[in-house]
Structure formats: structure tokens, C-alpha cells
Design a protein around this nucleic acid. Structure first.
Lengths: 102, 102
DNA sequence: AACCGATGTCCGCGATCGATGACAACACAG
DNA sequence: CTGTGTTGTCATCGATCGCGGACATCGGTT
């Protein structure tokens, strides 16, 4: 999902935590923060420590991508599955081979 | 690019700032932070305020995506140019039309 | 009812943040 | 060489963070 605000990240974290069937205490232990902090982040705490957020995403297996909005295909097209629908490398190889050059 | 650490974000920010031909002072003004803070972030400052980072990415037109690592096609294949080399939507359309359907 | 796990709130504390201002290092144009 | 713009460092200071601990709430179980 597209991430714009601390609230977006909070939702991603909470959803993923529940999907993994972890409670806040266990996630806190794995990330190395207090349960307090997990509560705050999931609620969209505005001024959170960035490195702790990264560690939390990592602990949950959430991958973060940064890209120029002008080359964000998904935004331009509204495609909801920019990454998972196909194996990008295969598609690119075929496309390039067809003469579309990179 | 894939973002794992504060350093990754710092590099993204610095590259994009230079691409837009902004100096640190101007970026700081637009984001509403001190120039000092921009310097720190670009150097990969570990414990930065998350909401300020988001505002900075926004000011630079950098889009952030979060997804489950198990569906991250680009990571699985190691493709270094998942977004910028071609117009993904066009490639996908052609690929699907060729019978490779998702 | 009593018990339990999970979640969320409140307090106080030490640590760290981000802002400000002054200054150094460096490149470059005049 | 002198001036100018950009980047980076240092010191100070008020504001805020994240932590531990105690406590309240809620739902489910026995």
C-alpha cells in the first residue's frame, strides 16, 4: 500500500502483526522497544523514532520502496498490484527482447 | 529503490534534492525544518522524527510503498530497475496480451 | 462470579531531539 | 585576492521521546 502519513504506517504494522498472530508484547520484544511504543505507532503516533519504525517493519517482513512519483506507474495507471501480479524481471526481459530497448 | 535503513532514505533524499536543483536551505524551508536537520537526514541520522521524514519525502515528490516481502517480485529476482527503466503499465499490458496473463 | 490475556492510559525519569546562531572548509566567479 | 554560495560542525536550550511500572478496560474461559 501507498504510505503517506504515520497513520498509514500504523495501519500497515497493525494489520501485519495480526496476520502473523503476534500480540503487542511479543512484537515489542522482537523489535526491542516497549509495548507502549508499539501502541503509539499503531495509533499513528506522529513523532516517532524513524529507525525504530524501520526495525519494526523489518521484524514484520514489510518491505519499503521509495521512488520518484513521476515514474510511479501504479499512480499514473491506478494499477493496484504494481509488484505482486507478475515477475517483473521476466516481463522486462521479454519486453526488451522484443525491441523496446531499455 | 528498496529502503531498509535511515541511510537508504538519506541517499534517496539527497539524490532527489540535487535532481531538483534545490540546496539544503531551500528544502529545509519547504519542509519546515532547520537546515541542520536536512544535513542530518541526508547523512543517515539514525533517530529522526518519522513525520518529518514523511514530509520531506512528500516535498521532494518521493512516493513510499509498503508491502509484504513475500509478494515482492523485484526482491525475489534482484532486478535493479523495477520502476524507472520503462513504463511498467505498458509492458504489463503487452505481456498479458501475449498470453502470459497473471 | 472469578480469572485471564490483550489492549490502552497515566505518571515520572533520563536521554535525545530539533531549532538557533556562529563559524570553518571548500569551490567558484569576478 | 575578494566576495559569494553551499555544505558541514559545534554549543546551547527548551521540548519531546521512549522506558518502566502501575492501573483500567474489555472479551473470553472456567
Amino acid at each position: 500500500m501507498r504510505v503517506r502519513t504515520p497513520t498509514d504506517v500504523g495501519l500497515s504494522i497493525r494489520e501485519r502483526r495480526k496476520a502473523l498472530q503476534l500480540d503487542q508484547a511479543e512484537l515489542a520484544r522482537r523489535v526491542g522497544v516497549s509495548r507502549q511504543w508499539i501502541i503509539g505507532i499503531e495509533k499513528g503516533k506522529a513523532r516517532a523514532d524513524f529507525s525504530l519504525v524501520m526495525r519494526t517493519l523489518d521484524a514484520l517482513g514489510i518491505v519499503l520502496w521509495a521512488e520518484d512519483e513521476n515514474s510511479a506507474a501504479a499512480q499514473q495507471t491506478g494499477d493496484p498490484l504494481p509488484f505482486s501480479a507478475v515477475r517483473i524481471a521476466d516481463v522486462l526481459a521479454a519486453h526488451r527482447g522484443a525491441g523496446a530497448g531499455q
